[in-house]
Structures are given as C-alpha cells and as structure tokens.
Nucleic acid binder design. Structure first.
Lengths: 199, 199
DNA sequence: GCCTGAAAACGGGCCGTTTCGTTTGATCGC
DNA sequence: GCGATCAAACGAAACGGCCCGTTTTCAGGC
C-alpha cells in the first residue's frame, strides 16, 4: 500500500488527481451493475472509487446528474446498414436487446428511467432523449427513405416512437430474451403499416 | 392479495383487519399523490394512517407489496364500446391518458414501474400484468373480431402490446397531454398494419 | 501565506425490527 | 346466556444501521 503504516504521520496526503472524475464514473457504473439500482448510492460509489463524498458532490449536484453522465458515457449499440429496411430494424432490435442484456447499458438505462420518476433533471433529460429525432430507429428509416424503399411521406418519428416504445416495454418488464421470430413478427407488423396506403 | 371473503376461516384472537387495512391503503395512496414516489416511505404512510409501522409490516412484507395492493385498488379506466374499432382505440387511449393525468392512477403506476426496477416482487407482478391477455386493448380487439370488423387471424396480443407500449412510454416521459389528433394518428397507423395483407 | 481538495464528522431521515402496554373479540366455564 | 379468559392485533416508542447532503478539519502545492 502507498499509505504509511504510522497512524501519527499519515503521508497519503492530498494527491492532485485531475482524472478522478473518470475513476468516479467507472466506479458508478460498476456499482450499478453489481448492486443494481437499489444499491446505487453516493456512498457506495465513493467507497468504490476511493474518493470522498464531497469530491463527488463538487462535480455532480445530485445522484441523478451522476447517473445521467454514466448513461451518456455508454457505448452505443450497433446500428446495422444492410440496405433493407426489415433487416435493419430486426437487426437493430436484436443488437439492442443483446446490448441491454450483456452490457451495463440495460442496467443504466433502467435506472435512469426509474430515477426519472422522482427526479426532474433525469425526467427532462429522458424526455428530451425520447423526443430526439436522432434516434437509431429514425436513422434507419431515413436511410430507407433515401434509398426510395419507403415513401418520404412516412412519419418516421411516429414509427420510430412505436419501435422504441416496444423496446422500452420489453426492457422494463424483463423480456429481453425474445427470440428473433418474435422480434421479426413485430417488425413485420409495423412495416405493414408503412406499406399500406395512408388514410 | 388473495380475495379472502371466507368468514369460516377463523382462529382464536382478535381480527380487526379491514378498517385498519383500508386506512393504511388510503394513506399510502395519498402519500404517493402528495409526495410522489420519492416521498413514499413506510414511515410516511404510517404517520398519515396514524398506524404503527409493525402493523404495516405485518400485512405487507415490503414497500413493493404495499404499492402493488394500492395499484390493484385503483379504479379501472373506462373502455369504450362504440362498435367501431378505431373509435374504441382512440377513445380508450384518450380515457387512459386523462385517467393517468387526473387521478392517482398515473402516480401509482409510474411508482410501480420504478419499484419494479429494483424489486423482484413488483417486477414479476408487472411482467404478469403486461403479459396478460385480459388487457383493455385486447378486449377491444376481441370485440372487433367478434363483430367481424377485423380478421380472427390478427395477433391481438401483438397489437395490444404495441398500443400498451405506446401508452407506457408516454406515461414515463411525461407526455400525457397529447391531443386527440396525435393519438388518432398513431391508432390509424397501427390499424393500417391490421388492414394490410399479412406477410 | 494562501488555496485546493481529501478525509472525517455532523445532523437528519428512513429502514426493518423489537419491545412495550393496551384493546379487541372469539372461546369456554359457569 | 354471560362474563372471564386469552390469543392476536393494535399504537407507540426506541433500537442499530445505512445513507443522505453539508460542514469542518487539515495536509500539501503554489
């Protein structure tokens, strides 16, 4: 250990650590994965990061703010680009479910949604994210429009919202293990809405 | 939990259940509405109900269990039956959003979803509810089938799941104030998927 | 000698539980 | 019948513990 064993002369000192923010964010993510949202406390994060609570509160005003930044650091899920809308949508949902299952992203996103139910900062951020036109599904649909695969008059936001809602509900009800057939059935159904003549 | 309307099930000793249980459930709902999910604690409920904490813990093993029973006591939203599928779906979503906005049901359901992210009991219950075939949207679709308005081969569960996902996401992102036009647009889109020939 | 920043301590709230003394109501002896 | 009895449920208080958000203390760098 770096710390001297002599209690009368603790020489561990106050080392300047400009990158401690990274350590705290990594610790926060680790706590979230290992202990879940219920065990996610500033205390636990500080212990894990070997940092003091005031250090965390200096940079993040609330638990929600820390959670938000952990969320924004997440690696993005792969968005396929196969040249066919159906394959892109099915592939994306498959990737997304696997991503949520197998990385910390699922835990983080679930926690963010839960936190948003009692914290205005998280709620506003989540609403902004959900309303954003840059969602992955939106990109897939825009590409299909550019290829001429679907009409430019299709309401991408509406379709993307439906697909995203489907994914959210599966995340929130622990149904991320759907097989490809189920996902494809839903995608096919939604695509029938695209193909049918507008009303 | 289980409806025990059986007066024959008796043993020795005092049984003053109903009054106190009702008072606690009403207090729990009131706390949830007034203080939100963040302020929903057993302590707060006990204070409000002028009951002791042990009384609450005797009947409900956890916060999630109490939340579940509050949720199950909620008045159900009106399910319209106009004889036309489109009007039924639009009317139901309008009713549902208004119900969530204007009664305590929205707060209770949001809290239940949040709790489900860290409590297995709530999670299992929520998943069961979401999987249930007796959902309101499912009833509307079954009625449309019985009238011959849509084919019996339509996957009601899939369509109901899509509609429910849409509603959930709007609840969770504070977008319950959508006007009828937006709701109708989504319903029309989903109905085009019904009308289009299957693949 | 300031200033930065980590560690420790503080006051407060809620948790889930235990321990009181009291109240209720079904059972049973009279 | 009817009152005594006794188990169960009750409200209240207090507990040890954890975590909150803040404040204070103190060691080193400039």
């Amino acid at each position: 250990m770096a710390a001297d064993a002599d209690p009368a002369r603790k020489s561990i000192g106050a080392r300047r650590n400009p990158d401690s923010a990274d350590a705290i964010l990594e610790a926060a993510e680790a706590v979230l994965v290992e202990a879940g949202y219920a065990g996610f406390s500033i205390e636990a994060v500080a212990r894990r990061a070997r940092a003091g609570k005031p250090t965390i509160y200096r940079w993040w005003p609330s638990k929600a703010a820390l959670l938000l930044e952990v969320y924004q650091r997440q690696k993005r899920v792969d968005v396929p680009d196969t040249g066919r809308l159906e394959e892109d949508l099915v592939g994306f949902l498959k990737n997304l479910f696997a991503h949520w299952r197998e990385t910390s992203s699922g835990s983080v996103f679930r926690s963010l949604i839960a936190e948003a139910q009692s914290d205005d900062t998280a709620s506003a951020s989540l609403a902004g994210y959900a309303l954003g036109r840059r969602s992955h599904t939106g990109q897939i649909l825009e590409r299909a429009k550019a290829r001429g695969e679907i009409g430019v008059d299709i309401d991408s936001a509406l379709v993307a919202d439906l697909i995203a809602s489907f994914a959210w509900k599966h995340l929130l009800t622990n149904r991320l293990d759907e097989d490809e057939a189920t996902i494809r059935k839903t995608v096919n159904y939604v695509m029938r809405g695209i193909a049918a003549p507008g009303k």
